[in-house]
Each structure stands twice: as structure tokens, then as C-alpha cells.
Amino acid sequence: MLRDVVSPLTYHYQTWQQTVLELEALSKTYKTGDQALTNVSFSVPAGQVVGLIGPSGAGKSSLIRCINRLVEPSSGRIYLGETELTKLSGRALRQARRRIGMIFQEYALVERLTVMENVLSGRLGYVSGWRSFLRRYPKTDIDQAFSLLERVGLGDHYNKRADELSGGQRQRVGIARALEQNPELLLADEPTASLDPKTSRQIMRLIQSVCREMNLPAIINIHDVVLAQNFADRIIGLQAGEVVFDGPPSALTHDVLTRIYGAEDWGQVQQNNESQDDEALFSNAKVLERS
């Protein structure tokens, strides 16, 4: 039944070679009886940025958290490369988690630690307990942290406490922390939900470009359809825990959006879809303001 829904829109990836993540019939039912995910299957090749869209409560957040097992899936299988994540526990699970970087909605930085400590916490899965306790990280980790901070544009802020930074800066630290893990896969749970429109686009562009540079695949759970269209290579639409769309951003039509979100006037989305860069978006907004 699921195949029937998806097949007309299934997106063929000739350009992507190697599969990094594979989900097989993933389902999640919470103890309360809520069915968050039903039979979700798809695979993500190296370097692909996937935008995961859908209404609130569609199971986007549960899906992201099932992949690194912050939420336990009820059934189904998850493969990261050759490793079956769903079989792991204890130490092996922690070693698999360090291969998956994660970016959070409210940044989820440890507010009272310095920026540097937050970035270095990305190495926790690699270093021993006493090294992390004494903050004596290997030199390569520290060098990498410095260069990542420079890459995200926060080179001078390393000894500031995380709660001294603005929202956009905090999310940059969050990205640096995820990249410090040298991940094979990046997960992002609503990375722009707490940011203003301009900062949101900057953050999305940063994620997109680091993914390009490192040939890093990403799954970005995002409620803003326009942002998803602009920065993702592929869109997956979730509705009540099921995949109802899987295809290129250009295939997101009125019908598809209605299937995902329910009936609404999608005119505005289409209009924005055409404007591919920030300037155009902001001049649109100005036009709207004047009229």
C-alpha cells in the first residue's frame, strides 16, 4: 500500500553512488499508544541533503531520534553503512552514535560551559573518561575544533560561555559540535525553528555548504517548506507517521503539499519557490510591505 502512494514520485538517484543510511520498515509506537511512525523505509546516499517535512505531530522528530536511538524504534531496521544500528546496545551503540552528528532545535548547547568545551564535547565518544573530565583533549581534536569554529565564523569566541551568544551563534556552535564528531551522517531537528528568517537562511546555507564540502549526507527535519525547497536535494514528506512523498524539491506541487499538510492556499509557497536567493526573498518581502 505504501509503495502505491510513493511509486509515481519515487526519486531516482543516478548521481548518488554509495548508500550511507538505510531504513527498513521502521515503526514506532509510544507507550501511550500513539503511533508515531508506520513502516518508514528509505535510503540516503553520501552527500545528499534530505529535507524532512510534514505537519507537527507527523513523526519527524521521532524519526530523527530513532536513527541515533535517542528514541527506541518499535520495529524495523536501520543500517549505517554496514552496521545495523537497531541491534546495538551499550558501548557499541555509543560508538555508533559518535558517527552520527546531531543539530538541535533549541541549540541544546550546555549553556554554562564554554564554546570550546561544547565543541570538544563532540569528541566525547572517542576520548577516555579521565581525558574528558580534565578537559585534556588530544591536540588533533583541539586543532580541529579551532578550525571548525573558524569555518562557522566564531573563531574568536572560543572561551565565551555558550549562554553569552546569540541564537544564530549558538546554532553555529551546535553545527561545529556535530562536525567535531567527524560524522558520517548529520541529523538536524528543526535547526532554524528558534531563529529569525535571515539567520535561518544563513544557518541552512552553512549546513548545505559543509555537507557539500565533506560529501556528508544530512536529514534535516524542517517545518518551513520554502527553506526545505531551497536548501535540500531531496524532500521526504511525512503525514501521520507515513511517508507520503519522496522526491526532488521541484516536484512539490500544490497537490503534494495538500497531501502532506491538508487543504490550504499554497500560492505564496509557489511564488517563493521561484526566488532562489536571499536578495530576491527579501525584495519580495519589501514589495509585500509596500503594497
Binding site: 535517542l70 555509543r94 552514535r97 559518535r98 538541535f104 541544546a108 564535547s121 565518544g125 564528531q181
Partner: peptide, 14 residues
């Protein structure tokens, strides 16, 4: 704040 705990746990920390 549990989200900070979740974030650190997701790095593979013990």
C-alpha cells in the same frame, strides 16, 4: 534541561 543531556548523549558519550 533534558535537551542538553540528549545532545551530549547523541555524541556517543558514556
Amino acid at each position: 534541561d533534558e535537551s542538553q543531556v540528549e545532545a551530549v548523549r547523541s555524541t556517543g558519550a558514556s
